[in-house]
């Protein structure tokens, strides 16, 4: 299947945030190595969206298949954040769950999940919610079989709702500045608790509370990428090689890590207070930092790197 301008994709020039799911996949993996499962010609579309008078997508907003990355075989799934906010519907979720289950048979070097999702697709809410639970169970099975599951987060829909829980189940995560990770989105918090709790129109607040830099500094993500496909590729290859095991020791370490985070930062109101306590000299400058300057800060923060997942 020829994808979006497949021949002309330059991974160094392509913005992860702006790219479509197909462009990300094509540019992320070794050229020509991607083989799609349940591609658009099979028309596995949502049986439910027509009831809501909503248009469907031939791939239901997720591209899945196999490919090589730096010469090693992987399975991968890429959500399309522009279709229905990348949300989990029945077919969309079934494709991800099927891919994860297939990993147990195929034993690839890793499974990559290119998150770009607002969470559950409300028009198919029960199917989406259940698929998220199935995906988390499948990820645990895949990790326990010794296969790393690496999440890449930097799309325009972010990684919200159940997507945030799936991300928290992965072996490793790479994020870019635009890669927000959270359970309740800003609008959801504001709608339920009021603008004084969370002003969703304050974009700077959104980025520093849920964005990639905050998650990286506090150990919620394991690599920080510039907003290019090439940067995500480099991060993915590196993270595959240092993925932690899934076992009791790892979860005990995560329990201690998360308890320590509450003890140390539980009274912080804003991310800048968290960063100051992490030893960042001038926290107000963090959002404006380029990747190199930010990496230098990360290297001095003890919380950022760990195997407690």
């Amino acid at each position: 299947m020829a994808g979006d301008r497949a021949a002309s994709i330059d991974p160094d020039a392509l913005s992860w945030y702006e790219a479509t799911a197909r462009q990300r996949v094509t540019a992320l993996v070794d050229p020509g190595s991607f083989r799609e499962f349940l591609g658009p010609t099979e028309r596995r579309m949502s049986p439910h969206l027509p009831l809501f008078d909503l248009p469907r997508a031939f791939d239901d907003g997720i591209v899945i298949g196999r490919a090589d990355i730096a010469g090693t075989p992987v399975l991968l799934a890429a959500q399309e954040g522009r279709f229905m906010g990348g949300a989990f519907g029945e077919v969309h979720g079934g494709k991800l769950v099927g891919l994860l289950r297939a990993a147990l048979d195929l034993k690839p070097r890793a499974v990559l999940i290119l998150f770009d999702t607002g969470g559950v697709r409300l028009q198919e809410a029960n199917a989406g919610e259940t698929a998220i639970a199935e995906a988390m169970r499948a990820i645990v099975d895949v990790r326990a079989a010794g296969i790393p599951v690496v999440g890449l987060i930097g799309g325009r829909a972010g990684c919200y709702g159940g997507g945030g829980l799936i991300a928290g189940t992965c072996s490793r995560l790479a994020v870019s500045e635009g890669g927000r990770i959270s359970v309740s989105g800003p609008e959801v918090i504001e709608t339920n608790k009021g603008a004084e709790e969370f002003d969703s129109r304050d974009r700077a607040l959104v980025w520093r509370t849920m964005g990639g830099k905050h998650r990286r500094l506090t150990g919620g993500a394991d690599a920080f990428c510039a907003d290019t496909v090439a940067a995500f590729r480099q991060a993915a290859v590196a993270l595959i090689d240092r993925a932690p095991a899934f076992d009791l020791a790892g979860l005990e370490a995560e329990q201690a890590r998360l308890a320590a985070r509450i003890a140390r930062f539980g009274d912080c109101r804003d991310a800048t207070e968290v960063w100051a306590r992490l030893g960042v000299n001038d926290p107000a400058t963090v959002p404006g930092m380029d990747t190199a300057a930010f990496e230098a800060i990360v290297a001095r923060v003890g919380e950022a790197d760990h195997d407690a997942r």
Binding site: D4, R22, P40, T41, R56
Partner: peptide, 10 residues
């Protein structure tokens, strides 16, 4: 080319 897809439903 047997098939191709372009664009996103948005």
């Amino acid at each position: 080319q047997p098939s191709a897809v372009t664009g996103v439903v948005a």
